[in-house]
Structures are given as structure tokens and as C-alpha cells.
Design a protein around this nucleic acid. Sequence first.
DNA 1: GCCAACGTTGGC
DNA 2: GCCAACGTTGGC
Length: 152
Amino acid sequence: MNYWLMKSEPNEFSIDDLERKTTEPWDGVRNYQARNMMRDQMQLDDQIFFYHSNCDVPGIVGRMTVVKTAYPDPTAFDPNDAHYDPKSDPEKPRWYLVDVGFVEKFSRTISLAELKQHSALSDMSLVKKGNRLSVMPVTPTQWQFILNLLSS
DNA sequence: GCCAACGTTGGC
DNA sequence: GCCAACGTTGGC
């Protein structure tokens, strides 16, 4: 079992959207590092923090799981889709995604500002300057530490 | 294979 | 809206 954090802009897709829909294909990722983690490492039932980026209070807002392991991202083949990539050949797909399932929305947002205050989390690339990865691994220790912040 | 130019991300 | 950081592209 692995732990992850995935970012989404709430304008585009929020934790509330996921709660309403229950599951969702995490499409549109066009970054090789992020793709590799989804395609090569994510397993069924892996745990994922849902992170809201590019909004008033960026931070972790809830929890989800992998409900379907990697398969080719269909939006890459759709010329009408905002994430269309003509270089992704259906015979040899360039982009992959996983399906995620809603677990819970946290009682509060664990903001980026709060996460940055804890030295226990200083190794997370999330809190490092210039980080732009939209999918990143979380260690079991970090995972538990962050969950504990909810009850403090 | 280098690297400048460009586009995107995302906090502030 | 600004801009720093970073990834990607493409000329050479």
C-alpha cells in the first residue's frame, strides 16, 4: 500500500465534485514524472490526499483511494478536449491515468501554510519552493502525521 | 546534446 | 495579476 498526494484546482475539480460523483478518472495529467507514478506505481486501494491548488487557501482537503489502476488517458486522443495531445498515439499511448474514489472530506482544510510550519514535513516536495508536481508520493510517517493534525 | 526561448504552474 | 521556478521544445 502506497500513499500519495494529488493536486487539483477547485475551479476545475474539487473535493465536493468528487464527493458528489463518488469516483472520477484523474485525467489531464501531462507531466512525465506524474504519469510514471500513476502508471508504474499506483496500486488498487492506495491512499491519496486531495490537495486544492491555485485557490484562496491552498491545502489538503480530503482523502481518496485508487479504485482503478492505470490505463491510457482518453482525453489525450480527443481533439476537442483541452488536454488533447496529437503526439499521443492510441497504438502507443503517451498519457495514463487512474480512477480515484472519494473517501472523506476533512472537517477543515490543512493549509499549505500550516504544513510548512512542521519540520516533520520539511522533506515533502509539496512544501518546497518551486515544486510543480501534481502527483507526489507521501511517506507512511508523513501520512500519519498529517492525519494527526486534524485532531489537534 | 546543448541551451535559449517559451509555456505552465501555483503561491502570494 | 505578478513572477519565480520549472519542464518542454526545437534550432543548431
